[in-house]
Amino acid sequence: MSPLSASNVAIELDAANFARLARSRLLNIPPDLHDAQGPGDDDLNPGANRYAATPRHAAVLVPVVARDPLTVILTERTAHLSAHAGQIAFPGGKVETFDETPFAAAAREAREEVALGSEFLDLLGYLPAYRTGTGYIVTPAVALVRPGFTLEAEPTEVARVFEVPLAFLMNEANHRIESRLWSSGERRFYAMPYGEHYIWGATAGIIRSLYRRLVSA
């Protein structure tokens, strides 16, 4: 039975086979930012319709490290930031006019935030653009990361950087649906707690999008 069958959703592939799978199922060009059917924060809140009419474009790197087993690099944002303080996030940020592609933007941000050089990155493809309730449309670029790098958190933005097994993130049993009360009412979201790290919101939504592409497709 294939390790990606419905009865065994935890990915158990080496780096080479994972790269082949990803290239066959991910988008090979950046996604259409105007695709209203793409994933977003309101997937679990039908009718909420709180997306910005003209969202700002951002890109994140989904860095899958070629270890045995495969891992994913994530960061914890510093507590003093004005937006998303203390949350778990992928390396990434605003796409600037000088960025040739969303991957270039994500790679630049990864270098700035955690000192991950682009020479270690092999782009595998893109996920559909993800809309956030905070006014962004995010292009996730999935890359295989060659070991040998040394990560260093940029202290004004990143409190810590850590790795999570890809198999844990790709196992649907670890995808919780939780809710909180906000000023606008109760909202539901995906959460994937891992040890002391509470992965939720847009980061969990993008992980869920990766799962749908690689495992449940």
Rank of each mutant, 00 (worst) to 15 (best):
S118D: 14
R108V: 00
V72K: 00
P165L: 06
A167D: 15
V64D: 06
G185M: 01
T150N: 12
N171F: 10
P30V: 01
S82F: 11
R176A: 12
L116W: 12
F103L: 04
H84K: 15
N28Y: 00
E196I: 10
L166M: 09
A129R: 06
F103P: 01
I206D: 00
N174Y: 10
H57W: 00
A19F: 02
A36C: 08
H84I: 11
V9W: 08
A202H: 09
T101K: 04
R111G: 00
E109V: 03
M192S: 02
V164K: 06
I199S: 01
T75H: 02
G135I: 14
Q87R: 15
L21G: 07
V142K: 13
L181E: 08
V62T: 07
A36P: 02
A115Q: 13
D68K: 12
P128N: 12
S216Y: 03
G47P: 04
L127N: 04
Y136T: 15
T132W: 09
L33W: 02
A6G: 07
H34I: 00
R20Q: 08
Y126Q: 13
A48Q: 08
R50N: 12
G47W: 07
H197W: 12
S7C: 11
G148Q: 09
G185R: 03
P30S: 00
L210C: 09
A16Y: 00
Y198Q: 08
A202V: 12
T156W: 02
I137V: 15
L4G: 07
R111M: 14
L33Y: 00
A129W: 06
P39H: 05
Y211Q: 07
T71F: 01
T150F: 10
V164L: 09
D68W: 00
Y126H: 13
T101M: 05
A89V: 15
L44P: 04
A115P: 01
S179H: 11
A110C: 02
F162R: 05
P155T: 10
A48L: 15
L74V: 14
L127Q: 12
P3L: 11
L27Y: 05
T75M: 15
F103D: 01
S7N: 13
D42L: 01
Y136V: 09
S183V: 12
Y194K: 03
H80I: 05
E196Q: 10
R77V: 08
A159N: 13
R208I: 07
G185H: 02
D68G: 00
H175R: 12
A104S: 04
S118Y: 06
L144T: 12
R111D: 09
G135A: 14
Y198A: 06
I88Q: 07
A15K: 02
P39N: 09
D41K: 07
E12S: 14
L4A: 04
P55E: 04
P147L: 02
P140M: 13
T150I: 13
R131S: 07
